[in-house]
Design a protein around this nucleic acid. Sequence first.
RNA 1: GGCCCUAUCGUCUAACGGCUAGGACACAUCCCUCUCACGGAUGAAAUCGGGGUUCGAUUCCCCGUAGGGUCACCA
Length: 454
Amino acid sequence: MSKAQSTNNIGIISAKSQVAQVRTRFAPSPTGVLHVGGARTALFNYLFARQNGGKFVLRIEDTDKERSKKEYEDDILNGLKWLGIEWDELYRQSERGEIYKKYIQKLLSEGKAYVSEEKEGKSKSVIRFKNPNLKVKFNDEIRGEIEFDTTELGDFVIAKDEETPLYHLAVVVDDFEMGITHIIRGEDHISNTPRQMLIQDAIGSPRPVYAHIPLILGADRSKLSKRHGAASVNEYRENGYLPEALVNFMAFLGWNPGDEREIFSMDELIKEFSLKKIQKGGAVFNTDRLNWLNSQYIKNMDIDKLTELCLPYVSSRYPAAGSQREKLKKIIELKRERMNTLAEAGEEIGYFFEQPEYEKEKLLWKNEKDLNATKKHLEKISELLKNLDENNFMSQNIKNAVWDYAEEQGRGNVLWPFRVALTGLERSPDPFSVAEILGKEETMARLKRAIEKI
RNA sequence: GGCCCUAUCGUCUAACGGCUAGGACACAUCCCUCUCACGGAUGAAAUCGGGGUUCGAUUCCCCGUAGGGUCACCA
């Protein structure tokens, strides 16, 4: 390097930037929605590019006109954006016909490919690659040396005609043209690699670095797919998962920092990610763990932001919530520690918006048999709260007002019916917080109603 | 079936060839507690089998076994 430096400055700068610039790519075909498998591949490519100050290229592989759909492309783009995986460049293979044509003609004229008349299949003629029948070897960043005998591949088809390249050709041409330096992709592509290396040699492309990452598996340990349920990124989004949690979760499928930390932001991942630490074996997608991670992010999120995110899930059931932001915020604050997903914000909160229905027996605490005793407690609570000013009707004050009496009578005997009178539920947040949110008027009304019930 | 890849608690995983194989999720018990949840503590739970190499293998090598991937005019 020092020798080159002394000779030609300009030459070095360009040569150096060409060599040093890391370029990765995610190349989905828009024949289906974005799944966590693809998203995780995109994530690893993104992390690696960012970590090395390189570029992350998104390439839509839509050469199959029959199966490619705009709506799928939109789903993929939206999903990546939502996850915070930003691409630096975007290409569509459908817009690059001229480039492929040039290469196909070159291969044809150099005798490295030929037009083949077909007896079987859809077209009468296709373009086949003249297989030199070599043993090829490559050094996978994750798996080490992998060797193939390409003889068994035969003269595989690389294009239908001069205008329509097929997958292997398009990939190799694009990776070459786009200056891709590192190909990080699913393990299911290992067996595609030898074909692609053969084509690389034929068009004079250098070898990129390969890193084949382990697959994400369903509970049955087969490649994750639609039949394993909600594997679609946008479905997770709709079900109330946070992009930060999903990113954190996906990163840890096959990778880990080597110590015992679990929570990682995108920036931290960029800093710590390493191809060398990627696992070789497939990883089962574990929804329990995703839920736990999601709940961690929900617990630590800014309450205003969380409230906004929960709003759609709440207002779809309780339209009034939209116009009661302060109340909703308090509800969410109570609710957040028992939520795994944003969608759960809308569950079991009906009593905040409408009077709960319940059987009077539900007011009885544990072994208490005497409804009259319970009635007496409720009456006493009413009396104690009556004096509390409306403006001071806050959780702590309510607790202070009732606490001594509850201690004296047995907390459960007093607090259980208090809570049920307000919520109608056996399981809910504490009665003081609920009373505050309900307000004095509604709290008193519900106590009265419970007393009258008995 | 051919070729290729892989193998540590149920799951995600840690462990320069050297400690009682560590952590997390889930599970169980206990504490906190009016209930639920949160939080805290504790517990049960793993190196696929067989050979080598070595003073010593989870770790390196070989053979099995099991699982997975891939074998298109899809990507």
